[in-house]
Design a protein around this nucleic acid. Structure first.
Lengths: 223, 223
DNA sequence: TCATAATCGATAGTATTACTATTATATTTG
DNA sequence: CAAATATAATAGTAATACTATCGATTATGA
C-alpha cells in the first residue's frame, strides 16, 4: 500500500487553494507544520501568524497558498478523505462477497489511524486526530452551500456513496443506505472524540472497539 | 405540556454565566435576540457588538451576563438539552412497555422541533436550528475537558444516559448501549443538517423520516 | 423616604486577528 | 544572462474580543 500511494498524488479541488502547496518546498512545509500546530493548539487558536513563526516564514507568504485558515482546513480535510478513498478502494477491490467487502469498508473508515508513512510531509495519524476534532467545522459555516456547489466536499461525499453502493449490494431493499453510511462515517469520528473526552457516554475505549460497535450495528441493521 | 413547562424554570449550570439572564428583562432579551441573530448570521459571524445593536443595548452590558460568545452558546445548548430532558421525561413516564418507552424517547430526541410556545422569550424551533448547526462547536474546543469537569455538559450527558437506561431495559445484553444512543442523538442532528445542505448523502427529507430511520435502526439493532 | 446598591449605557482604550499592499531580495527557468 | 517567479519583511487597516471607567437611572431595604 505504502509504495503505491507514494507514487500517487492525492487530488484536491483547485478552488480550495490559491497556489497548490504540493508544488513547492514552502507549500509542503505549510501543510506539514499546520497539521502539527492545529493539533497542538486547536483550530480556533490557530493563526497564519503563528504558523509563519513555527516554520520560520512570513504570514504573507502563507496567504499566497491559502486565502484563510478555513480554506486550509478544507484542504487538509479533502486530502484526508481522498487518502481514505484510496484505502477504501484497496480494501474492497477484488472481493466478491459483498458482506466481506462491507466489513472491510466499515473497518477502514471507522478505525483510528495509528500511523502511515505513505507521504513524506503528512503525518496521517495526527491528521486523523485533527479530522476527529475539527472536521465538522468545515461544514458548519454560513457559506456551506456555496462551497458545496464549488465542489469542496466532493471527495467526502464520494467516500460515503462508495460505501452506500456496497450496502445496497448487501441488502438492496434497505431504505436508508445513505443515512446509515453518513451516520456511521460521522458517528465514528464522534465516538473517537467521546472516547477521548466523554467516556461516560460511549462504550468504545480503543479504536478497535469503535469499529466493532459499527460492524455489529451494520450486521444487525442489514440482517 | 406547555402549561406545566411554563411553570418550570429550566436549570442551567451557574458557572456558564456571569449573571443569570433569567433574572432581568435585559437578560431575557439577550437570550431571545441572540437566538434570532445566531440563526440569521451564523455563530462564527455573531458578535456581542452586533447583538448589542440589535437589542438597542451596549456591548459592555452583554459582557455582564456572559464572559464571551462561546459561553453564551453553551448556555443556549444547556437550556436546549434541559428542555429536551423535560420532554423526554414526559414522553416516557408511566409507560410500562420498555419498547414503547424507547420508541417515544427516540422520537422526542430525533424529531425536528416545529414549534413550542412554552417559554415567552425562547423560540424553540429556531433554537433547534441553532443546535443542529452549531452544537458541535460547544464541544470541539481545546477547553472541553476543563469545561466538562466544571459541569457544562452535564444535562446533555444526562439526556443520553436516560435513554441508555431504556435501551438496557429493552435489551440488557446489548453491549453498546451508550455508543448507540450517543450516535443517535448526535447523528440525528447531523441528518437534519444533511437534509438541509447535503441531500445527496442522506435519505431523510422530512423530520419524520429522520425519526423513522432511527426507529427502524434501533428496532433491528436490539432485535 | 432616604441612602445605597445594583444596573445599564456610553465612551475609551488595548491586544490580537485577519487580512492587503508594497518593495526588496533571492531563486528558478528558459 | 535576463526575465520571471517566489519569498521575506515591513507597514498598514478594519474588525474582533475584550477591559476599565464613569455617570445616570432604577431598585431595594432600613
Amino acid at each position: 500500500m505504502n509504495t503505491i500511494l507514494s507514487n500517487l498524488k492525492i487530488q484536491v479541488n483547485e478552488k480550495i487553494y490559491v497556489k497548490d502547496p504540493e508544488t513547492s518546498a514552502l507549500g509542503k512545509k505549510i501543510i506539514e507544520q499546520s497539521i502539527l500546530l492545529i493539533d497542538e493548539i486547536g483550530f480556533d487558536n490557530f493563526t497564519f501568524k503563528k504558523l509563519g513563526e513555527k516554520i520560520g516564514s512570513n504570514e504573507s507568504s502563507i496567504y499566497r497558498y491559502f486565502e484563510n485558515k478555513h480554506k486550509l482546513l478544507v484542504y487538509l480535510s479533502s486530502w484526508y478523505w481522498s487518502w481514505m478513498e484510496y484505502k477504501l478502494v484497496f480494501a474492497t477491490t477484488n472481493i466478491t462477497d459483498p458482506k466481506e467487502k462491507l466489513r472491510n469498508a466499515i473497518t477502514i473508515v471507522t478505525e483510528k489511524v495509528i500511523d502511515d508513512s505513505s507521504t513524506e510531509h503528512i503525518n496521517e495519524a495526527i491528521l486523523n486526530k485533527i479530522i476527529i476534532a475539527e472536521f465538522t467545522k468545515t461544514l458548519h459555516t454560513k457559506e456551506v452551500d456555496q462551497e458545496n456547489k464549488e465542489g469542496f466536499f466532493l471527495i467526502y461525499k464520494r467516500v460515503i456513496n462508495r460505501i452506500v453502493n456496497i450496502v445496497t449490494e448487501v441488502n438492496p431493499s434497505y431504505l436508508y443506505a445513505k443515512s446509515l453510511v453518513s451516520t456511521i462515517v460521522e458517528g465514528s469520528l464522534h465516538q473517537h472524540f467521546l472516547t477521548e473526552h466523554f467516556t461516560n457516554i460511549t462504550d468504545c475505549n480503543t479504536s478497535k472497539s469503535t469499529t466493532q460497535f459499527y460492524l455489529h450495528l451494520i450486521e444487525n441493521v442489514l440482517h
